[in-house]
Design a protein around this nucleic acid. Structure first.
Lengths: 338, 338
DNA sequence: CTGTTAGCGCCTTCAC
DNA sequence: GTGAAGGCGCTAACAG
């Protein structure tokens, strides 16, 4: 493990001062071209690269955009692809950071604090909950929390998507339709809940509170809620899950209970993550344009960073029903309605 | 944009010196518990978080693991998921960095130099080409370049996979089988080329050099090679592409040329990225366990960082044929052979 | 044109 | 138990 060359090493080897090296490397004026040449030759020879950290401490601008996530799971990975695509030709480096491991929640503020003001010039936060606007750098939130929408946001039409999903089940003939909710602090989760209820209501179906479980997008909570719901004699014949991860976990629980999907139980998710289309049977879902969420967030952020104030500061992208193999008419068609 | 609280703000507000704050925050000995309490109260009140950057400059260890990629495309995104999974319970933060935008190539060394020794305690590099071992932090390479295998690597069985892919085409009855190669500097690309040739040879088919194009995993190069190959009168009836991105681009070219896939042209890729199974028709491919590559790399790196010297320092993971809808027997079965 | 002098925010001796 | 001083690698004023 050899020590990497610092600006001091270069300066010493080239026989100049560190500030001269700094100027030469960064193409500042006020250095003779022959000095520049000599310095750059040494730079190549020593394999010197300026430390991102050290320079960011002084210069207040780094050309790096940060994407802050709780975790690298399928949803945030798709977002990341979209951001990467949008930034590919923008001479900005991209830094994705996941620092959830500290405290249970509040990762957003923590990560942002630790990186902002120094390392990154702007940030995109994925499913953040507690973020007070008024940080040092511009921030755009994707699929944000409930509460005052102080900062620019990009999300998809969760209400409309939930409506489509639930209507799809109703049209198949289901009347006992369960819902396993997501993180109650996310605006999108609440909208999906609302869409579910609206669809039932408009079809003249009552909302049975015992058919609504809370999953919080966490496997253990989902499992518990699903078990409770499916072990009952009057179990639902279909479940709408607040996202695909949740849906896949429910499929697992259903299998353990010996239920046939979609024969005994229809399941529909939300997101359309890659993992869903590869499950067996392939998961029916509502597609939200995740990569586009990322790309739009990047565009917004770029504008913000250039001091512009983009006009629509809250973007909502459309969702689309993607029926696959986990939804079907209920087997014992006591359906009746419609 | 309010300025975030620094250690100085905390010190001033608590009426102590910065060094006391540092000790209190980091749980060092030599501070009275009541002072600690007071300091921590101020920390909470001000929402102070130590700057990752500043502390990393002094402390030489940050608890952050870096994943260095050229770009956030499907392959590296899958890797990232795997790394994230492996690190989920390891109290390490994860930082993914893409800094390709500077110079054409050599991003690996540049990114590593800029981050290592300060920001990250260890690095996983995805498809790196030029990396001299002997950096400041432990490094593991995924799908590495050709040349001396100085550093620990994780890759999948490209030769075997290519063999399976090409045999699959041969078994379907194809005899004119093209190949569009990947980045010639990657060991995996060369192995796929070799597997292709071996499969042809063992089936008694000659390798026609005009049926081998170079794509370098770049859309424009792939397009050019595919156009040239497919515009000919004696065009191949099947093409094996060195990865799925390449295969998808070939599908596009085929469509433009009015070729029916798989009727006029069978195509098989390599990787099994999510995008492949969603194409129309669904892409036949060879699956490599991308998430597992990431997870294994993380495990290796963790061991390295703890000073251990893991025994198998080069891992090769198995691949598996996934025939889907883009491969079929040739229409005008002039096949004959076998 | 080039070198010197200050820090950026933090952590670590080393005195008090 | 606490504070002052020094320095990590770099850049941005200033001098020379």
């Amino acid at each position: 493990m050899k020590h990497r060359a610092t600006i001091n090493d270069v300066a010493a080897a080239a026989g100049v001062s560190v500030s001269t090296v700094s100027k030469a490397v960064n193409g500042r004026y006020g250095v003779s071209s022959q000095t520049v040449d000599r310095v750059l030759a040494v730079v190549v020879e020593l394999g010197y690269e300026s430390s991102l950290i050290a320079s960011s401490m002084r210069s207040r601008t780094t050309g790096v955009i940060g994407v802050l996530v709780a975790d690298f799971e399928p949803f945030s990975a798709e977002i990341l692809k979209g951001v990467g695509q949008a930034l590919r030709h923008s001479r900005h480096d991209l830094l994705a950071y996941s620092g959830s491991h500290g405290s249970a929640d509040g990762w957003e503020r923590r990560s942002l604090s630790r990186l902002s003001g120094t390392l990154i010039d702007g940030a995109i936060m994925v499913t953040p909950t507690v973020v007070d606007a008024g940080t040092e750098v511009p921030v755009v939130a994707i699929d944000p929390h409930t509460g005052p929408a102080d900062l620019p946001t990009v999300e998809s039409d969760s209400f409309g998507g939930a409506l489509q999903a639930t209507r799809h089940l109703i049209e198949l003939g289901h009347t006992r339709i369960g819902f396993i909710a997501g993180r109650p602090d996310l605006r999108s989760s609440i909208a999906r809940d609302a869409g579910y209820r609206r669809a039932l209501t408009e079809a003249g179906l009552a909302v049975d509170p015992t058919l609504v479980g809370s999953g919080s997008y966490r496997a253990d909570a989902v499992r518990e809620a699903a078990l409770e719901m499916l072990a009952r004699a009057d179990r639902p014949s279909a479940i709408f899950a607040a996202n695909d991860i949740t849906a896949i976990e429910i499929m697992r629980v259903g299998a353990e209970l010996g239920l046939d999907v979609p024969g005994d139980l229809s399941i529909i998710g939300f997101d359309d993550i890659p993992e869903g289309s590869k499950s067996t049977p392939a998961l029916s879902t509502v597609r939200q344009p995740m990569q586009m969420l990322g790309a739009e967030a990047a565009r917004l952020l770029l504008a913000l960073m250039q001091g512009e104030t983009p006009d629509p500061i809250h973007l909502t992208l459309p969702t689309r029903l993607v029926p696959r193999a986990t939804t079907a008419p209920p087997r014992t068609s006591a359906a009746g309605i419609r």
